[in-house]
Design a protein around this nucleic acid. Sequence first.
DNA 1: CGCCTGAATGATTTATTGAAGATTCACTGG
DNA 2: CCAGTGAATCTTCAATAAATCATTCAGGCG
Lengths: 218, 218
Amino acid sequence: MLCKDTVRGNILEAAKKRFLHYGYAKTTMAEIASDCSMSPGNLYRYFPGKLDIAEAICTEAGEYAVARLREVMRRPSRTARERLRDFLFADMKLTYDQLEYDKQVFEMARVVASERPQFANRILALNRALLSEILAAGNASSEFFIEDVVFTAEMLQSATMKFRYPQLHSKLPYEKLERELDGVVNLLLNGLDDGGAGKEQLARQAQQGSPSDDLITI
Amino acid sequence: MLCKDTVRGNILEAAKKRFLHYGYAKTTMAEIASDCSMSPGNLYRYFPGKLDIAEAICTEAGEYAVARLREVMRRPSRTARERLRDFLFADMKLTYDQLEYDKQVFEMARVVASERPQFANRILALNRALLSEILAAGNASSEFFIEDVVFTAEMLQSATMKFRYPQLHSKLPYEKLERELDGVVNLLLNGLDDGGAGKEQLARQAQQGSPSDDLITI
DNA sequence: CGCCTGAATGATTTATTGAAGATTCACTGG
DNA sequence: CCAGTGAATCTTCAATAAATCATTCAGGCG
């Protein structure tokens, strides 16, 4: 006997294949149902609607990304500063690669994000929790002296907004984004007093790049 | 005899009235021409097209904003840090008020920004020049020790992207944006070492706010 | 009953077309 | 010539019709 969750899983599986291959808009509920050898009506016993199937798929992907970021955070013998830097770069790369090279993933993410605003916020909250962990660890090792770790994590997200879902905000190529994230991270780590160059001079080659064109997309 | 620039000015004047009152889309070239007592065809002897008229109007507005920001920068007896903070807040408020309360201005800005990507970049460059001035003054007074002032200005713009044209990126209400800009500015001024609280404890009341919902718009 | 079907419904998307308007240009009066 | 005209063109937009598809639900089967 098939339990409800197994069926749900099958539906998600089938829908994912279709969404990734043909795109969200070009996939019909009838097709998904047919792939699962059931009637379209029956899908609604497992999901409230098409959008919810897409959201479930995106949630899975979000959880996968969190898992990857946790790995990055676990790298041994790094300072909290390095860990924070690694984290922000890994985060940018994950979404960039995902959204840049797969039109269909992009479409699905776009639809879910715009129809279900809370979805993006849940992902951001997960992400913020990880950031908070890094900051708390930095406090513990006396690298940082941060009073309100959660608030500071939120501000870090704010300042790195541009790098979070790059395609939604700018049309910069990846290396430009990398250069800017590097510069911003240095400012965030060290403040303006040392000019954002970073105590470790990591920014040297990044600063060679020329100012970005096309900062804004609409 | 009417010189070419006078005619251009009249056209801009008439177009501005129409664009602000009826909106860009609802204004026809024939109407603008008629307001100037000329034929539609003749407009093209002064502007390459309708969009260029709108762009010229937006450029004027941008220069006006720069002038206002210069005033803010000139406030007497303030530290470079305070000046920077004032500047970023004033900048956010200028665009927010402009775009929030006038649907027609918003429409025009939207069209110009999306059809003429370089336009937004020119405005950003003007803005960056002002930021650089503030930073350079801070260096001169030994408040900052910034090697590459222009690069740092660019990074400041990057980190405050979210606050630059708020309506294009998020649907946060103004007080939420203010709270976040405050937090981000503190991080930028001081780095993580003091937790982004800011040496002057200016952030106290801002930190009372709850985390933002709806970070992202598409 | 409980699980599922598939036709009926109504919303949404796409295709088509007619009108409106941006742009061009051959021409005119000064 | 020069500044300007206004009808002709060609693009873009809006309205409507047609088709598609998400969703619902009255019923059938085990």
